[in-house]
Design a protein around this nucleic acid. Structure first.
Length: 270
DNA sequence: CTACGAACCTGCCTGC
DNA sequence: TGCAGGCAGGTTCGTA
């Protein structure tokens, strides 16, 4: 489900409810996520105020007095805001109950999500090595060009590597490469500065538009109000293998790159 | 260092 | 109808 636009949509949805709120308590029903939830976590954050909430890559961070909660949605996770208590459904793994009576509920069928406590997120192993934020002005063609020297990996895998740039997953990598007319299999080092600039700009454009549309709902992504995102209507290659290219009407090809399905147009992506 | 596959999970779809 | 197999928006880890 969640790449940067879906995480950003989720963040915006919960942010207004959380500012100046205090965590009354956390109720955990399933601790086995990507990493097990610490048995200390309920005690640590009980009755603690939330100082700040922000996003880093696909991680949502909640700053508290003594440290920071780290939340990741994995492949199938989502957060909902409930204005009053309702019985948990299947895969509702934990609730964050707020002092303002509202409740944030985490649902994640595949349990690839994560919920961790750290005293310093900048030192945390999941956060400290993350690359550039793609919507930051420091993410540019020059930035990509400098980093892809001597890299033989496919350009698609390169832009999906979160040590280089965060937040670009399988959907938006495929779409940005189509928009840039670049073959996703091209070894990264073969791109010149001009192509890097085009690609960086297309990544920004796609992510901004997707955020504006509330993210992509393929089957089950819902925002914190339980509503889908509408970027799916803008997808030009992702999920369209065997269909016709919207640009040149050739048949779109589906291959695998780095164990991820990849759709592109062999005619107009060179 | 790179490259590649496996692993962590459930659910859904396809084909026999 | 049942069941095996493959695939899914992410990411780390182990082995060569």
């Amino acid at each position: 489900m969640p790449e940067l636009p879906e995480v950003e949509t989720t963040l915006r949805g919960i942010k207004t409810h959380l500012e100046h709120a205090k965590i009354k308590k956390i109720v955990i029903r399933q601790r086995k996520l990507r990493w097990p939830i610490s048995s200390e976590i309920e005690k640590i954050v009980k009755n603690q105020p939330i100082k700040k909430i922000w996003r880093r890559g696909k991680y949502i961070l909640f700053k508290m007095d003594q440290g920071t909660l780290i939340l990741h949605l994995g492949m199938s996770g989502s957060l909902r805001i409930l204005s009053h208590y309702t019985p948990p459904l299947k895969h509702d793994h934990f609730d964050i109950e707020l002092s303002n009576k509202k409740l944030i509920r985490f649902n994640d069928p595949r349990r690839f999500g994560a919920f961790l406590w750290t005293e310093d997120p900048n030192q945390h192993f999941l956060i400290k090595n993350l690359g550039q934020e793609p919507l930051d002005k420091n993410f540019s063609g020059k930035f990509l060009f400098d980093r892809l020297q001597n890299k033989k990996v496919a350009i698609k895998s390169f832009i999906m590597n979160n040590k280089i740039v965060v937040g670009v997953g399988n959907i938006y990598a495929s779409e940005a490469l189509f928009a840039s007319k670049l073959n996703p299999n091209t070894p990264a080092y073969k791109l010149d500065l001009k192509k890097c600039t085009l690609l960086a700009n297309e990544i920004k454009k796609i992510l901004r538009l997707a955020i504006k549309k509330g993210g992509t709902t393929l089957k089950d992504f819902l925002n914190s109000d339980g509503k889908p995102g509408y970027f799916k209507l803008h997808l030009k290659v992702y999920g369209r293998g065997g269909l016709l290219c919207v640009r040149c009407k050739n048949i779109l090809k589906e291959i695998r790159i780095g164990q991820r399905s990849t759709v592109y147009c062999p005619l107009c992506q060179k």
